[in-house]
Each structure stands twice: as structure tokens, then as C-alpha cells.
Design a protein around this nucleic acid. Structure first.
Lengths: 200, 200
DNA sequence: GGTGTATTTTAGTAGTGACTACAATACCGG
DNA sequence: CCGGTATTGTAGTCACTACTAAAATACACC
């Protein structure tokens, strides 16, 4: 067995570069030539050999996103209370979607919201990933109701959908240029909908 | 002076058909051939003669959208109170973004959130239109504070940004398949953030 | 019926989309 | 140094992109 010619680029670094382009321009707005330029790969076969086709590359890029710029999402669930978790999630979104080191907004939202039939697979993958986030939040809220943090009358599904909507709205706002401070204000306002105990 | 050969298609009807395509596939996901097929115009020069280029057609389509499927937005501001106006706006969004007669979501949100440099003009136009909606809401809330409907401590800018975020989040949720009933629930939850008077 | 005008029709442009066949190249182990 | 292997480089595929020049057509008016 032999080794073969070595790669002329670092795969993870190339994925990070591809992420930036997909993030900024969306799935359909990004061409293979854009990707090659950004990734530092100046021949198409290398790209296809390393990452498969455009669709598969997009999927790998989304994994990289989840482990990189969007890691705060997974980490938010480590907070001791559900309320703290939601706050970490939304304030984290306000920061991440306005990070000057990355395109504004969230690739999971703006990557392929509406697209041609040829990009349905990318769109479906993003729908699934957004749904997965909502499901994770729902489970955390259910647990919070079980533990007594949330009143027994609370509907975790409903609350999860509400905060997910806030999250996605923040992504749209960020893409439109809303400032980081304003996004944090939005989160504060949104948190006033948190269920109150029936004492007070 | 003479009349010239008559149009073989109805302009407004053609714009409605173009709206459907742009709405479903986004600006960049829509090709001129898609538009021609949907609009019932089987030669490109007729389309360019009647509506200008793709960018100008998109703009005309957005006007048509505002006067048609999104008319509820303007009408919401006719409500007697600001609270009723916001409720009409958001419940209207829940209905409009899940109308079975149209693509899901809101073209203003999903038409061109992230796109290639070549589609920046379309993106910018959508950003401006979303900002215009937020401005209108802000003015309505300012007026409500002046009239005493809202407590004097209320920040109308902040509240407008919050409800605009809800609106845009609803559009993303709808695009992802969330049901109409669930969207209405989200609106109800969102409305609990409405400023309360300091009595109770 | 003829003229002027605005449309449709036909046929095309140059450019780009994703993707690939094939040959040249650079490394590994022996 | 040589064979095996996995990459790179070159060049090209076909389909589609937005858009248009020029000619044929269908109407209103005189």
C-alpha cells in the first residue's frame, strides 16, 4: 500500500472558507467557482474528490457551522435552569448573528429559505436542522416543567415554538442590519413572556 | 397616432403569476424561463418590453404583493388601538403565511435573505421594505404612547423591533411548515409582552 | 385600403451553472 | 530507483442564465 499525492489544502480550513460563502450568499447564490476561490482550491476535481457534490459540501459545511460559530446553541443547554438556557440561546444568537468576523444572520435560516426545485434538498436539510433545534428546546422545557421550574399549566411545545420564532426573527433582523444592542433588547422583551408563577 | 399590436396577456394577471414563482423560489432561484412559463408569455422580448429586466419585474411584483396578499398589513393599521393593530398584523401574518392558495411564508422575508453579489439590488429592496414596515409600526406605537394607550415609560422603537421580529420569525416558521394554529398560538404568547399599566 | 405603432416571433448572444474524463504529478512503501 | 495510489491540472462537457437584434404580425386611425 502506498500513500498517494498529498492534499494541497487543509480540509477543515477549506470548509470554514466555504461556510463563509454559503453563509453570506446562500446555497443558490453560491457557485462552485466562488467556493473554489474562497477555499483556495483552483481545480474543480479536487473539490469534488474531497467533498462530493455541492449538496454534500453544503451538508458538511452545516456540520462545521454547528461545531464552530453556532456551538453556543448546544452549550446553551448546559445552563442549570431552562430559563438560563433560553437566555443563553437568544443572547448568544444576538451575538453570533452580528459577529463582525462572520456574515450577518444565521446560515440555517438564510441558507435556503426559498429556492428552486433543484435546491430542495438543501432547503429540506435546513428545515430539518431548524426543527431539530426546536425539538431540543421543547425537551429542555418539558424537563423544566417536570422539575417544577415551570408551572404545571405551561405548554412546553408552545413555548418552544415561541422562542424558536424569536430566534429565527433575530436571524432575519440581523441579516437586515439591526444592531447587536437592539437584538439584545429584543431578547429582553421576548423573555417577559416567560411563564410567571401564580403567586405575586 | 395609432395603437399598435395589442398585448396577448393581462399585465396584472401576469404579475400575480410571477409573484407566485418569486414567492416560492426566491429571487435567485427563479429563472426568466420559469417566469415566462408561469406568466403565459412564451417569448422573452414581450416580458422585457412589458416589465423591464428581472430586477424591475421583481420590484413590480413586490408592489403587487403589498396590494394583494399582504394588504392585511396596511389594513391592520386602521384598527382603533395600537394593540388591536399589532394583533391584526400578527394574526394576519399567521393566516397569510399559511394560505393554501399561496406559497408558504412571506416573500419580503424569503425573497432574497442571502444572495450573490449580482442580486444585491433585490436584497436591498427587501431590506428597505422590511424597514418601512417596522417604521410604520414604530410610528403607530409612538402615537399610542402619546394618546395614553401605552404607558409613558414604554419605548416604541424597542417594541416595534420586538413585534417585527415576531412577524419575521413567523414567516420563517411558516416556510418551515409550522401549522396555522401553532402560528396563532405564537402570536398569543408574543402578545403577553405587551406593556402592562402599573396598577393591577 | 394604407400607414404608423406596439406587440410577438424567431433566433440568437456571451456568460455561467454544476460537473467530469484524462493525463500529469507527488508522495508512500519496498 | 520503482510500482502503487491519490491527488492536481487541463480542458472540456451540456444545460441553462439573463438578455437582445431583427423581422413578422396585428391592431387603431385616417
Amino acid at each position: 500500500m502506498a500513500g498517494g499525492r498529498p492534499r494541497a489544502f487543509d480540509s477543515d480550513l477549506a470548509l470554514d472558507r466555504a461556510l463563509e460563502v454559503f453563509w453570506r450568499q446562500g446555497y443558490e447564490g453560491t457557485g462552485i467557482s466562488d467556493l473554489m476561490k474562497a477555499m483556495g482550491i483552483n481545480n474543480a476535481p479536487s473539490l469534488y474528490n474531497a467533498f462530493g457534490n455541492k449538496e454534500q459540501l453544503f451538508s458538511k459545511v452545516l456540520d462545521r457551522y454547528a461545531e464552530g460559530p453556532a456551538r453556543y446553541i448546544r452549550e446553551a443547554f448546559d445552563q442549570p435552569t431552562a430559563r438560563a438556557a433560553v437566555e443563553a440561546l437568544l443572547h448568544g444568537a444576538a451575538d453570533a448573528t452580528t459577529d463582525p468576523d462572520h456574515p450577518r444572520g444565521c446560515i440555517t435560516v438564510q441558507g435556503a429559505l426559498a429556492c428552486s426545485p433543484g435546491a430542495q434538498a438543501a432547503r429540506d436539510e435546513l428545515v430539518a436542522r431548524r426543527a431539530a433545534g426546536e425539538t431540543a428546546l421543547r425537551e429542555r422545557l418539558r424537563q423544566a416543567r417536570s422539575s417544577g421550574e415551570l408551572p404545571t399549566g405551561t405548554d412546553p411545545d408552545r413555548l418552544a415554538r415561541y422562542f424558536t420564532t424569536i430566534y429565527q426573527g433575530i436571524a432575519v433582523q440581523a441579516a437586515g442590519g439591526t444592531s447587536r444592542e437592539h437584538l439584545h433588547q429584543i431578547v429582553e422583551t421576548a423573555m417577559t413572556a416567560w411563564p410567571q408563577r401564580a403567586d405575586a
